[in-house]
């Protein structure tokens, strides 16, 4: 039996290009592109050594020599902010990919295997009840600071939200006539999930993925700021701000510039998410992606 046209993977992906014409999405992508290119080209953007200590140049305000000033160790804030973009983007995208893939798997399992559903969803409820920052802090403290640890620690609290979303899509798709027809025609479970259920999860997952990405960039900044994030020797936006805390009253630029970068990047990703949600499907994904 040929698969019904509306649910085929190719036609669902074909809805993406018009979504990319949404003005918010375009604006957000442009900002993200600038940040991404800066991160890639960090050594060539009039940057110096991000970890070079220059005690004689401590806490210098922004000038033509140090565009964004220097921090308490005389390190150039511009250089560190540009290199910090690498960490933030890596974490944002890795967490989004990990949370979406694992959440997709758990959601499909819970939505399709009724016997596992109750158990799996209670575990998800339990993870959701723990404030995500606290869970992440505890995991980083116990496992030791590192980019990998931080990615895992931020991704785990995000998984239940993705799993719930996928599960609800599965439950609503299950009773659709074309799925019942496919079952009646003897389609096996893996084929059923891949051809009929999976395509329906793509649009909401893309939207949810952008919110997870935005939330992950913010959470990295918060974890590093609290001293439970990226190791201090790696310049990340959170670390730069954490080290600026002591000298905030005399050198506010050490916190304000990286803060601005976090805000602009997260704003761009959030706007992309809102735009995609409007364009792809106004009903499925709600704003709960930003709930932490």
């Amino acid at each position: 039996m040929p698969s019904p046209i509306p649910s085929s993977l190719a036609s669902r992906l074909a809805t993406l290009p018009p979504a990319l014409r949404h003005p918010g999405v375009l604006f957000g992508l442009a900002v993200l592109l600038v940040v991404g290119l800066a991160a890639l080209a960090a050594p060539f953007l009039w940057t110096g050594d991000p970890i070079l200590l220059r005690p004689r140049l401590r806490l210098k305000p922004p000038s033509s020599v140090a565009w964004l000033g220097t921090d308490a160790f005389g390190r150039d804030v511009w250089t560190r902010v540009v290199y910090g973009a690498r960490v933030s983007l890596t974490i944002g995208f890795s967490v989004a990919a990990a949370a979406v893939l694992i959440g997709l798997f758990i959601g499909l399992v819970a939505g399709y295997l009724r016997r596992l559903d109750a158990v799996v969803m209670r575990i998800m409820d339990g993870i959701m009840a723990i404030p995500s920052i606290l869970l992440a802090i505890a995991m980083v403290t116990l496992s030791g600071a590192g980019i990998g640890t931080v990615i895992v620690a931020i991704a785990i609290p995000e998984i239940p939200r993705v799993a719930r979303l996928v599960r609800s899509v599965v439950l609503s798709v299950r009773s659709e006539p074309y799925v019942e027809a496919a079952i009646g025609a003897g389609t096996r479970l893996p084929m059923l999930l891949i051809r009929h259920v999976l395509p329906n999860t793509i649009a909401p997952l893309i939207v949810q993925g952008t919110y997870v990405c935005a939330s992950a960039i913010l959470t990295e900044a918060i974890l590093s700021f609290l001293g439970a994030g990226i190791p201090t020797e790696i310049p990340s936006w959170g670390n730069i701000m954490a080290e600026g805390r002591q000298s905030f009253q005399i050198a506010p630029w050490v916190i304000l510039f990286p803060g601005l970068c976090v805000a602009a990047t997260v704003l761009a990703v959030n706007i992309i998410g809102d735009g995609l949600r409007d364009a792809l499907d106004p009903r499925t994904a709600r704003r709960f992606g930003a709930l932490r």
């Binding site: 976090v262 997260v266 704003l267």
Partner: peptide, 18 residues
């Protein structure tokens, strides 16, 4: 509201202190 979701809490705190 989108802006409120995007600014890290502590950056806002320092801006207000400033």
């Amino acid at each position: 509201s989108v802006l409120g979701f995007s600014v890290p809490v502590f950056v806002l705190g320092y801006l207000l202190i400033f």
